[in-house]
């Protein structure tokens, strides 16, 4: 079975710091599976996600995402890879406030011809996703700044899913939500991923969510710690 991603002998340290922030010998996730990464703040959670996204490059080691070695790619190719294959959900500020939720959902199609092809009727798909995620109909076509945080995070799921990416990367997407909204978010995320057979890498410090995932990984405390924050 193919891998959603695989890290080998990964080392990463921010320029100007003595110690490496991340040292991972091996970490892998099978396609279609869901991984929960837990770590204290400053342990390099967000950095790890940036590495998986191809935004940052490690000092040494291999990062294979969907069986492609990102460290061998030039930055433009990594950007295209991200546009074609990944859906990313941030902790907050997931939407452009001046676009409607539907327009926000369609954003990933801007830079990816592959995803445009995999989404023949984009508007319809976006509306269907948003309705599935329980976004009220009257909010579909108003500027996104009118949405609550919970609603915005659900739109972010739809945006990450459009054009059928292979891997969803979520960086503390629930930390701005209260318990009720958090549960609803998690339910929506899993349903959507299940339906499209999408792999998920989910980072959080909230351990109570860990049990819902196929795999869990705890980031070790970095050596010589408390230097750079990653969040």
């Amino acid at each position: 079975m193919s891998q959603a991603f695989e890290l080998e002998n990964l080392r990463f340290g921010w320029p100007g710091t003595k110690h490496d922030l991340l040292q991972i010998e091996h970490l892998a996730l099978q396609t279609g599976k869901h991984l929960f990464i837990q770590g204290a703040s400053g342990s390099g959670k967000s950095t790890l996600l940036n590495l998986l996204c191809g935004v940052l490059l490690p000092q040494s080691g291999q990062i294979r995402v969907l069986d492609q070695d990102l460290t061998q790619y030039a930055s433009a190719r990594r950007d295209r890879f991200r546009a074609d294959h990944l859906g990313i959900i941030f902790q907050q500020f997931n939407l452009l406030p001046y676009l409607t939720p539907v327009q926000n959902c369609l954003l990933p199609l801007t830079f990816s011809a592959k995803r445009r092809k995999q989404c023949p009727s984009p508007e319809k798909t976006a509306i269907a996703y948003l309705q599935q995620l329980n976004l009220p109909n009257h909010l579909l076509q108003v500027p996104s700044k009118n949405l609550s945080i919970g609603q915005q995070q659900r739109v972010a799921i739809a945006r990450a899913l459009i054009g059928q990416p292979d891997l969803i990367i979520a960086d503390e997407p629930t930390s701005a939500l209260d318990a009720a909204h958090r549960d609803r978010f998690m339910q929506c995320l899993f349903e959507a991923a299940e339906e499209h057979h999408t792999s998920i890498v989910f980072v959080s410090h909230d351990l109570s969510l860990a049990s819902e995932f196929d795999h869990q990984y705890v980031l070790p405390e970095p050596p010589g710690r408390k230097t750079e924050g990653s969040e």
Partner: peptide, 13 residues
């Protein structure tokens, strides 16, 4: 935030 988002969906630097 806008720039981060555009980068996330694949905009080059």
């Amino acid at each position: 935030h806008e720039i981060a988002l555009l980068r996330a969906i694949g905009m080059h630097r």
